[in-house]
Amino acid sequence: MTTKPTVLIAGTGFAGEGHAEAFRGAGAEVIGIVGRTPSVLSQVAEKLVIPYQGTDWQQALSDCKPDIVSIATPGGAHYDPIKQAIAAGCHVFCDKPMTATGATAVELRDLAAAKGVKTAYAASFRYAPSVLHAKALVAAGAIGEPTEVECISHFNLERDIPFGWSHSAAQGGGRLNNNFTHTLSIAASVVGEKILRIAGEVRDDMGRAPIVEGVHNFTERRNFIPKDLDDPSLKWGQSDVEWSYTVMAQLEGPHAKKPVSVLFKHGGLVPRFHEDHIVFYGTKGAIYIKGHYGSGQLSHHDGTGWTDLPLPAEITNTLPDVQGETEQCWHYLAREFVADIRGEEVHPYPTFTEGAQYQQIIDLIRQSDNWTDIDKLS
């Protein structure tokens, strides 16, 4: 491909704007955007200087004939637009979760493979600077053979945030879809992409949430929490997804002879005491990264003590020059994706293969059928 690849965006919220800027940063041309609400769509298209805008996805595909589509809507709204885009021969960049179920994700994976289009799955915090640093250190033997990983986070989200897609399994909500997807991708990228075994349990601590009109941008939902939660006229929606989870996994990788044990522990509604963190342990040391997605300071334990390490130049020189950790990771993945479409050599990146696998894993964890009743023992 010698000309700029063209991109059609689905979604006008935080992710839609972020994807548009990421593809521009990767050298693509954003030619259209599709959204549900005409007034919001018009504002976003004008703000981002996107020439085509529409509310009908199938019509937009026909009108724009893009090389790439970027799916930046909640997960429950991914299936039909992706299926239509694949049928039209478009390459597909999709934010997580891939779809609302493992079965639909597998279907889309197989359709994309049969059509011969490229796909990218944006479980993209594997491109956080300190995660890239950890990956290089592990590959260089800085901790010996990896033995275990722990990913611990507590978000203390407000229980009264307005009811929306994040409360609904059918719409792609839940903390597994929107937190675990990233941490699983991080652990796999550092110690080994082959996932051998999984077990876990989930809990819905939320129950219900107030229904409030006018929430459009996910990042601004806190501004819509009702001032009077005892108002008798207030309507409530019922959550049917997990807000906390505990997952254990075993990963196989090139740097360890035995499977690497991984613990994923997340509490969406509970406060943290110490920092959220990701730690990689090995036979000769450990790597600690501050932050729930590994975007903070990296420290190395060499067997005698901890040392904070600066980012090496070979990593800082590859980082997109943008603000925001989420945006920076979108830019990184979009750059890899566009380069691959152009026929350039790139490192492996997450595709619908990973997206479909992760969605099936989430289905398994949500079954929470790993328990043994002790009262049944003799």
Rank of each mutant, 00 (worst) to 15 (best):
P5D: 14
P5F: 08
I9L: 11
G16E: 06
A20S: 15
A26M: 07
A28F: 01
A28L: 06
A28N: 09
A45P: 01
E46I: 13
L48I: 05
V49G: 02
P51V: 14
Q59L: 09
D63Q: 12
I68V: 15
V69N: 07
I71L: 10
P74H: 05
G76E: 05
Y79M: 02
D80C: 00
A88Q: 11
C94D: 11
D95Q: 11
M98G: 02
A100D: 13
T101F: 04
T101L: 09
G116Q: 06
V117M: 05
K118D: 11
T119K: 10
T119F: 08
A122R: 01
A122C: 15
Y127D: 07
A128P: 01
H133T: 07
A136E: 11
G141Y: 01
T147G: 05
V149W: 04
S153L: 00
S153W: 00
N156K: 04
L157A: 11
D160G: 01
W165G: 10
W165V: 00
L176W: 03
L176Y: 03
L176H: 01
F180K: 06
T183R: 15
S189K: 05
V191Q: 05
I198T: 14
I198P: 00
E201T: 09
D205V: 00
D205Y: 02
T219L: 10
N223F: 13
G237V: 10
S239L: 04
E242Y: 02
M248P: 00
G253W: 03
H255Y: 13
K258A: 15
K258P: 00
V262H: 01
L263F: 07
P271M: 07
F273G: 15
D276M: 06
H277W: 04
F280P: 07
G285W: 03
K290R: 14
Y293A: 08
D302K: 02
T304R: 09
T307E: 11
D308N: 15
P312F: 13
E314Q: 12
I315G: 03
T316Q: 13
L319T: 11
G324E: 07
Q328I: 01
L333D: 08
R335Y: 12
E336T: 06
V338R: 06
E344L: 13
V346G: 04
H347L: 13
F352S: 07
T353W: 06
T353E: 13
G355Y: 07
G355W: 05
Q360S: 12
I361S: 03
R366Y: 08
N370G: 15
W371Y: 13
I374A: 14
L377F: 12
